[in-house]
Amino acid sequence: MRTDHHIILRVVAKPLIPIIALFALYVQFHGDYSPGGGFQAGVIIAVAVILYALIFGISPAMRAVPPAFTRSLAAIGFLLYAGVGVWALLMGGNFLDYDALFNEADGGHHGQHYGILLVELGVLFAVAGSMLSIFYAFAGRVTEIKDEDW
């Protein structure tokens, strides 16, 4: 068996990856109160998977998070964002007018809160899915340069 040059990386990365994913969820759902939001959380989730792919190889990463899933995720996120707008339209408001979502009285913030939550979730899905699809497209390509050329 060949020697494993990356043993330290593997040992350090293994506990780190779930923490990165957890931090992404914190950034996502605490984004109303602190810096953060869908864009940042989506990128952080993508980074967690990319770290896994860099250290454990691209095929285990593709088995864990299949490319078909990432590109569907991007489309679902975009549709979720647009869907919130259509929901507001159906409730009689303007496109993406969150106040119309629940037809509540003046001063109520439920529509705004749920609207922002859903829209940020859509951004999270779209950004994470797009970034991972882009990474897979680059990483899955056959390298023409040999390792010795480094």
Binding site: P67, R71, A75, S130, M131, S133, Y136, A137, G140
Partner: peptide, 19 residues
């Protein structure tokens, strides 16, 4: 962002085949 991902996929493929 979504259409950029689509453009990259169109240019480079999904990744599975080359893998």
């Amino acid at each position: 962002v979504f259409s950029a991902a689509l453009a990259v996929i169109l240019l480079l493929g999904f990744g599975e085949r080359s893998l």
